[in-house]
């Protein structure tokens, strides 16, 4: 699609638009660059510049609490990604390839975790677990507590939707006639899925999984509501540190978290490139 000459703003308007665009990019990136630079500053005061040092990074790597919370984050992200990728892919298949009663209700239910504000979902999960544990404990005499498992269950609850939306987009653009052809050739339903559908949607499934991983590693609010003693994730721990006041170590750990975020983003962008190259070959 090329923009026609008269449709495009000319003269002053054109330069205003370009200048505005670069200002928006500056707004996005200058604060991040400032954080990056100051994370190497030798000063104990955040935002003051002194001779560069790697001291704050060393502090982060030697901090046991941070090590522990990273491990909790990784485990939550790993398990919630695997489970929600399977469930989300099944949801996408059910919505894109089948017609059944209750389909619209399911569709609506699947959208809600995407747009609900974090605080509201956090309240829902907390009240639900407290109430459910109350009932279960009183019947079976058990003693369930908030902790790793409640964090995991909550993360799966919002990640299914993120995976489903990505896989659905991929399914919608894939070719259903190939599946019909396989079926005509007496492939079993499982063979049909395994050999025809899955290879076609695989890039979408991987992109969905990466997205779920990113969202899970980012979450603060919902996790901080359903966490228990001994199972703090990294963002929840860092959030607690920020509340107590700024410190150069927070700068360093923030930079590391941004680097991980960006690595995941570039991973999924690369995947999308693979997808578009594939489809241009067709």
């Amino acid at each position: 699609m090329s923009v026609q000459s008269t449709a495009r703003p000319r003269g002053g308007a054109r330069w205003l638009l370009a200048g505005h665009a670069w200002l928006v990019y500056a707004f996005f990136y200058i604060p991040i660059i400032v954080l990056f630079v100051y994370s190497f500053s030798g000063s104990r005061l955040v935002g003051q510049w002194e001779a560069p040092t790697l001291e704050w990074y060393r502090e982060v790597f030697e901090n046991d609490n941070i090590q522990r919370s990273v491990w909790v984050s990784v485990r939550v992200a790993f398990f919630s990604t695997i489970i929600s990728t399977v469930l989300g892919t099944m949801s996408a298949l059910a919505l894109e390839r089948f017609r059944w009663r209750g389909r619209r209700v399911f569709d609506a239910l699947l959208y809600m975790p995407l747009i609900i504000p974090d605080v509201t979902m956090a309240v829902m999960m907390l009240v639900f677990f407290v109430q459910a544990f109350d009932i279960i404990d009183s019947i079976f005499g058990t003693q369930f507590l908030l902790g790793f498992n409640t964090i995991l269950l909550s993360h799966i609850a919002f990640n299914i939707s993120f995976v489903a939306i990505v896989v659905r987009a991929r399914l919608a653009s894939s070719d259903p006639t190939l599946e019909e052809a396989a079926a005509d050739l007496y492939a079993s339903r499982w063979q049909c899925f395994r050999r025809v559908t899955l290879p076609q949607i695989m890039p979408g499934v991987l992109a969905g999984a990466l997205l779920a991983l990113t969202v899970s590693l980012d979450d603060v609010v919902i996790t901080s509501f359903v966490t228990g003693p001994g199972s703090t994730t990294l963002p929840v721990y860092v959030f607690g540190l920020i509340k107590r006041g700024l410190s150069p170590a927070i700068n360093a750990v923030s930079v590391l978290m941004l680097v991980v975020s960006m690595a995941l983003i570039f991973g999924s962008l690369l995947l999308q490139r693979v997808i578009s190259r594939e489809s241009s070959l067709d």
């Binding site: 469930l87 298949l93 059910a94 059944w100 239910l109 639900f128 909550s154 609850a157 299914i160 489903a164």
Partner: peptide, 22 residues
């Protein structure tokens, strides 16, 4: 239609328990 429902069932049940009921 029945198969579609069965494929959706695990996630549907999960979201009812861990989203709709809460």
């Amino acid at each position: 239609a029945r198969r579609g429902f069965l494929v959706a069932l695990p996630s549907f049940a999960y979201l009812v328990i861990f989203f709709a009921i809460p």
